[in-house]
Computed example of a mutant assay.
Amino acid sequence: MTWCEVPGWLIGNEAIANYGCRMFGGLAVTLQLVAISVSLGAAMALLLALVRLYGGKVASTLVGGYTTFFRGTPLLCQLYLVYYGAGQFRPFLTDIGLWTLFRDAFFCAAFTFTLNTAAYQAEIFRGAIQSVGRGQWEAARALGLHWRGILRHIILPQAAMVALRPLGNELVIMVKSSAVASLVTIFDLMGTTRLAFARSFDLTVYLFAAVLYLCIVEVIRRTWDVAERRLTRHLQAG
C-alpha cells in the first residue's frame, strides 16, 4: 500500500491521504527549482555586482539597466515572456541548438528565476561591498596586494557578513515566489496542490501546502541564524 492509498481515517483527511504523496513530490520539484536558480543566481550576481562597481561607465550602466528591469517588473510577467516568448524565436533557437531547452517548462522557469534573483542578489552584494570602509582598500594597497587579492581575502569576506541576512531573505522570497511556476504546467508544490483541489474540492490541501511552505521557510530561517552566529562569532566574543 503506497502513501497515496493510505485510508483517509489514518491521516484525518481523505484529500491529504489521496494526494499527499504527489504534494511531497511537488515539494521536491520546488526545492530543486529554487536551489538551482538561487545557486546560479548567486554566482551571476557576484559578477554583476563587481561589474557594476568596477567595470566602467558603460558596463555599469548596462548592469544597472538589467537590475532595474528584473527588480521592477513582476516575476510572473518575466516567466511568461520567457516561456511563451521563446516560441517566437524557435527558428533561431533551433539553429543554435537551444530550442530543446526552451521548450521545457522547468528550464524556462529555472532560467527566469535565475535572472530574477541574480538582479536582487547583485544589489545585495553591491551594497555589502560598498559598506566595507575605503580604508581597507588603502591599507591593503599599502601592503602591496593586488586588487584581486584585496577582493578575495579582505573585501569579500567582510561583505559576506553584511550580505548574509539579506541573502537569506531573498532565498525565502524565492521559495514563496516559485509558486508561479505552476502557471506554466510545472507540477511543483503549488501545481500539485491545484491538481489535488481540482479533483477533491477540499480546501484542506491548500492549508497543507501552506504548512509545507512555512516549514521550508522556518528551516531556512534557523539555518541562516546558525550561519550568521558562526560567521560573526569573533565579533560577539568581544
Score class of each variant (00 low, 15 high):
11 I>H: 02
95 D>P: 00
57 K>Q: 05
10 L>D: 01
27 L>S: 09
80 Y>R: 03
99 W>F: 12
102 F>R: 08
20 G>L: 12
63 V>A: 05
110 A>Y: 02
229 R>Y: 09
43 A>I: 15
135 G>K: 05
25 G>I: 05
31 L>M: 15
154 I>V: 15
182 S>E: 14
205 V>Q: 05
161 M>A: 10
82 V>K: 07
186 I>K: 11
206 Y>S: 06
133 G>A: 07
201 F>Q: 08
95 D>Y: 04
189 L>F: 10
118 A>M: 03
48 L>S: 00
154 I>S: 03
99 W>Q: 05
160 A>G: 05
102 F>V: 01
193 T>G: 06
198 A>C: 01
42 A>E: 03
211 V>T: 13
37 S>Y: 07
20 G>F: 11
196 A>W: 10
16 I>L: 14
152 R>H: 06
114 T>Y: 10
197 F>C: 06
49 A>R: 02
179 A>Y: 03
81 L>S: 03
11 I>M: 08
87 G>Q: 02
47 L>M: 14
130 Q>L: 14
228 E>H: 04
167 L>N: 06
8 G>Q: 08
152 R>D: 05
65 G>T: 00
56 G>P: 08
59 A>E: 01
206 Y>A: 09
14 E>P: 00
224 W>N: 11
170 E>M: 10
24 F>L: 15
90 R>N: 01
159 A>G: 07
185 T>F: 06
66 Y>E: 05
76 L>G: 00
7 P>E: 15
127 G>R: 10
60 S>H: 02
224 W>S: 11
10 L>W: 15
165 R>H: 09
213 Y>D: 10
132 V>C: 01
48 L>A: 03
214 L>F: 14
46 L>Q: 00
218 E>P: 00
22 R>F: 14
85 G>I: 10
229 R>S: 10
55 G>M: 07
92 F>Y: 14
163 A>Y: 12
45 A>Y: 08
50 L>T: 03
219 V>Y: 00
74 P>S: 04
238 G>V: 07
40 L>H: 02
180 V>G: 01
177 S>C: 00
67 T>I: 12
197 F>N: 10
117 T>L: 02
3 W>C: 02
226 V>E: 05
84 Y>T: 06
66 Y>R: 02
134 R>I: 10
119 A>D: 06
200 S>A: 13
55 G>A: 04
123 E>Q: 07
32 Q>D: 12
205 V>G: 06
55 G>E: 11
2 T>W: 11
90 R>T: 00
82 V>E: 07
120 Y>H: 03
232 T>N: 15
144 G>V: 05
28 A>H: 09
172 V>Q: 14
129 I>N: 03
212 L>D: 11
198 A>S: 15
13 N>P: 12
21 C>E: 13
18 N>F: 01
129 I>D: 02
9 W>E: 15
81 L>H: 04
173 I>W: 04
125 F>S: 07
72 G>L: 07
